[in-house]
Every structure is written in C-alpha cells, then in structure tokens.
Design a protein around this nucleic acid. Structure first.
Lengths: 238, 238
DNA sequence: GCAAAAGTGTTCTACATACACCCATGA
DNA sequence: TCATGGGTGTATGTAGAACACTTTTGC
C-alpha cells in the first residue's frame, strides 16, 4: 500500500512519520476463517460450531480467530487448525479476503478465508470441543456472519482445483480404493462418473501408486488399494 | 471470525462486549494494492509509481491506498483506479490477501491485491500524476514492499484466467484485428502461436463479432476488425 | 447361487497440433 | 515488384465420452 500517493507532490517520508499521519486507519481487525473440509459417508462436510454471539444465536459459524499482532495469515490459519483439530501440516490454501463494512457486528473486521482438506478418520484428529460438528456442505443453508458466502466461495474454488490438480486425495485415508476415489469425485462434482473412463483418466495422470494390497471388510469382491504418489512430484497441474 | 472460540465454555456474548475484549487486536490497517495491467507495443505493462518512502527510495511500487473505515475492499480498489486513471467500470478481480508481519515498515498493514485490465489507449484514461509509469512487466526485477510478490502472484492468476476465460480482451481497444489479439496472447503466454490454429480456436469459442470493418493505417494488407461478444454472455468459462 | 462391486477395451467425436500456399495492400 | 501480413484446409494424434460383459468375493 502507498496511501500517500494522494499527494501530488512527493516529499520523502519515513515510515514512522507515515504511521502517525494514518493512525486513524489503524483501527481494523483482521481474522482468518478456516473452511475445514472433510469427507465421510460419501458426503463432503465442513467443520462448524455454534456461534456464541447473541446476534447469531442458533446459527453455526466457521472456525476463525483474530490474527495476532505478530502472526502471519498462514500461521494464524495453521494455529486455528491445530487448536481445533490437533492436526499439523494439513493441506491448506488461501481463498480470498472478505471485507464488507457490515460483515461483523463487533466493528471493522476483515477476514481472510483459507480452506483445508483433511481426512476425518485421521488418527491424530481430536476435536477441541464437543460442539464442533462436521456438517454436510450441501445441507447448509445459512451460517453466521458472511460465512455462507465464504463457504460457497471456498467450495467453488475447491471444485475448480479438483479438476486441475490432485487435491482431493487429502480428504481420503492414506490407502484407498479406486471406488472410494471415484465416489469422492462424484460427491464433489455432483454427478455420476463412468467407472471405466474414470479409471482410465486417473491412471493416465500417474498420480497413484499400486500398494499391492486389497481392501478388507467389504461385503463384495475387494478392490486394490492405492496411495497418492508423493506430492512433491506434482508442483502444479496435471 | 469467531475469536471467542478459544473459550471452552460458550456463554452468549454481544458483539459490543466482544469488541472490548479484543480491542488490542483493532490496531491493524488494511490496504488495497492495485495491479493495473495494460498492453502496448506488444508488451504487458503495469502501472507503477516511485515510492516516496525513505525505506524504498529509488524503487517503484504498485498503486495502493488504505481502506477507509466505511469502505468495502472492492470499492477501495475502484476508488484507487478512478483516482489514478480517471476510469470507471474497469474489469477487476481480487487476487488474494498478503499479511506477513514485516511486509510494511509503518506497522501492521495487511493488503488485498486486485488486478485490473484496461486499454492504455482508452480515451478517458488520464493519469493523475506524471510520475505514474507504465512499466513492462517482464522488465521489473524489484519493487517496494512485497509488491514484486504481489505482481508475480497476479500475473500467474492472469495467465491462468486467460486460458479459461475471455479476459484479455479488456486490454485491447474495442475494435481489434485477429493479429493484435494473437500478439496479445503470445505476450501473455510467452510463446509464439500458430496463426491458423489460433484463429480456429478463437472462432470456435464464439467470443467475437465480425464488425465488417477493416484495419486502417497499416502498411500491409488490412485485416478484419472484431469486437468482443457482449460480456454477459460468458458468465464463466469457454 | 445370488448380490455387489471389480476389472477391462473399442468406437466415436472433438480438439490440439503441425504444416504451406495464394492473396491484398502499401511502399 | 517486393515486403508484409491476411486468410484459409488437411492430416494426425490425443483425450474424453459412450457403452457391456466377465470375474471375484461375501453371504
């Protein structure tokens, strides 16, 4: 930013002097809201909790917190995730910033949304509070604040990414069958996929490693298990 | 956001009470930085100005400003664009937020980047200050603050979008020839394209309207002129 | 033996790519 | 007449879409 651009003449200033001039502007808060996606029972879910603000009584909200004075955005997002789920190193991506003037009843609070993808069945997953709830995304009609907008925006981004890049794997256990993977894609895209074409496409991508293991505990012919090829191999697309 | 999530018990609070509790957090500023792209002489350019901060003497910076207490992010971005270029209704898209703790010497300043695309030859374009400069993007090695990172991130997003959606047209005059359009795509993608294939692809998209006019003032056989099919026809892709 | 899902191949179509010649204009 | 770019079509390879039958396992 460069607020002093408004002046037509451009005398040199120090940053310290500039801060004084603009001290009236230093009265906003910035939060991070985490859109934590999980996948269970063939449904995409998001982690929410009841809002404890009187204004949003009976509504759920995303998990967020203010960004500390000496904390980066990404660090804040990782901290929230760790505090709420006990998990580190979860896949996470910034969605965008939301800053409508009336979005928060407490004052001027900008927020930056991050979505994360995690495996609900992960051993280390330990929700911090019994009120936290995995809610099926497609059953959510309303949320506190502008969180429904944030959710919808995140979901659109996730959908888009899932077509270009191997991100959805983060929602599955380490070992999974092609059927599970296909069901996941179907849940995200909202349409059924042809099994033969799906398998062909996935195997062309070269994303998977055949674990030479079979599914267990299924009441039908067991399928092969795979895991994702090490993520570093795919810096960007395809 | 929902900062009170930290409490394990969840007594109901009002937003006003919450603001007091968190007043220590309301000391950040939020700015918008505009990455204003233009296209001229077969080069993608970005509008910059000399930084007037002592800390960044001799460096250029993007055009930004603090977001006013009663101003939305998008409004701030439009205001900056209007103030700097005199233009309204310019195509614009949020890139993302940047919030590293040390990104600004004046204090904790978060910024939200927007990129805009405009036609440098637009009649209404009137730069507010003679120090503003259209700088070729690929010649920029360094900028003030974290603006080089912001520029690179915006450029990556622009490149990505340009492959999926008709956005680059905003960089051209209303009437343009297929050669001009192809040169623009080549400039953005950084590679030469086959003329026949390019024309086939573009005409398959159905984006263009044949104006039944010809180029003038070219020292060779003039080409047909086109304009973009009305933008509302293409809400998203293809 | 029945139910449920695994596993597999061919055809058709659409799109990307590679590639070369004649035409219209201005200088 | 020359230089410059305008304008066009064909052949090939690749990827996505449609589509059905046999196999394996649990019950």
């Amino acid at each position: 930013m460069n607020a002093e651009l408004k002046t037509q003449t451009l005398p040199m200033k120090t940053a310290a002097a500039e801060k004084k001039i603009h001290k009236d502007y230093f009265h906003a808060a910035v939060s991070v809201d985490c859109v934590i996606f999980g996948y269970e029972d063939r449904k995409l879910k998001v982690l929410v909790m009841p809002s404890d603000l009187e204004e949003f009584k009976n509504l759920f909200s995303l998990l967020g917190d203010l960004v500390g004075p000496h904390e980066d955005l990404q660090s804040a997002s990782q901290r929230i995730l760790k505090e709420r789920t006990g998990l580190d190193g979860v896949y996470m991506e910034q969605v965008q910033a939301f800053g409508d003037t009336d979005r928060h009843p407490s004052g001027r609070v900008f927020t930056v949304a991050y979505y994360s993808l995690l495996n609900i069945k992960h051993d280390g997953l330990q929700l911090s509070n019994p009120l936290l709830k995995w809610m099926p995304v497609y059953e959510i009609k309303q949320l506190a604040f502008d969180h429904k907008l944030i959710l919808d925006t995140s979901l659109a981004k996730l959908r888009h990414m899932s077509m270009e890049t191997p991100v959805l794997f983060h929602l599955l256990p380490e070992k999974f069958s092609l059927r599970e993977l296909q069901e996941l894609y179907e849940a995200i895209q909202g349409q059924e996929l042809d099994r033969r074409n799906f398998r062909k496409k996935i195997s062309n991508k070269g994303w998977l490693v055949d674990l030479k293991e079979m599914e267990k505990d299924v009441s039908h012919r067991p399928g092969k298990l795979y895991r994702l090829q090490f993520a570093e191999t795919f810096p960007q697309k395809h």
